[in-house]
Amino acid sequence: MKTSVLRGLLALAFALSVWQAAVWASGVPPFILPGPARVAESLWSNAGLLAEHARFTAANLLIGLAAGVALGGATALNLALSPGARLLLRPMLIFAQAVPVFALAPIITLWLGYGAPSKIVVVMLVIYFPVTSAFFDGLMRLPPPLADMAQLMRATPLRRLLLLQLPSALPSLASGLRLAIIYAPFAVVIGEWVGSSRGLGYLMLMANGRGQTDLMFAALITLAAQSLALFALLEFAVKERRAPGRHALPASRMRREAGNPADASESDHLRP
C-alpha cells in the first residue's frame, strides 16, 4: 500500500516536471498553456470559487449517478424476472444504446431548463444503459449448477432472482458501476456546457472565454479529483465485499471451480 502511494507520487512528480519543462522549452505564453506552478497558484487563490462550483457539479453528479444506478438496477431486475418485459424492452434498450445520449443534452436542456435537473437527467441517461446491460447480463448468467439446484428445489422466480441471481451478478454490477463512474463526469460537464450558470463545466467554459487558462486547468483538476475520489470509493467498496471469509467471492471464481475439478482438488486443504 505504502509503496503504491509512493509510486503514484513519483509518477505525478514526473508528469508535472514534463509539463513544466514543456512550458519552459516551448516558451508558450501562459494564456495558451500555463505551467503547473501557475495552475497551483490559481487553484489556491480561487479555492472559494472552485469549491462553490464543484459543489453544484458534485451534487448533480451524485444525484444523477444514484438515480441512474437505481433505475438501471431496477430495469435489469425486471428484465431478468419477466420474459414479457424482455420481449418488449430489450429491443428498445439495444436501440437506445446506439443513440449517443450526449447528443440529447441540448434537447434535455430545452425541456428542463438551465438548472440542476437537466444535468441530473443527462448523467442519469448516460449511465443508465451501461449499468442496465452489465447488471442484466450478470443476472442471466447464473452458473449452471445453481440453476439446476434452483429448479430441483422448486424455487419461485422472485426468490431465485433475489437469492441466487442477484448475488452472482454483483461482480457484473460492479463493472457496470465502473463504467458509470467513468461516463458520469463527461455527462455532467456536457450538460453544463450546453447551458448553465454554475458548475465546473460552466467555469471552464467561462475561464476559457476570458483567457484565464490557469483557472480552466484548475477547474479541470478539481473535476478529475472528483472522478478519482468516486472511483476510489467504488474500488474500496468492491474490495470490502471480496475480503476472504467475510464477504462474497466473485462469481467468476465460482464458475472456475465449477468448471474445473482439478482446481477443487488442488485446493483440497483447509485454509486459515
Binding site: P145, L164, P167, A248, L249, E257, A258, P261
Partner: peptide, 8 residues
Amino acid sequence: QDGQLLPW
C-alpha cells in the same frame, strides 16, 4: 461434482 454451493 462441485460448484453447487453459494460462495457468498
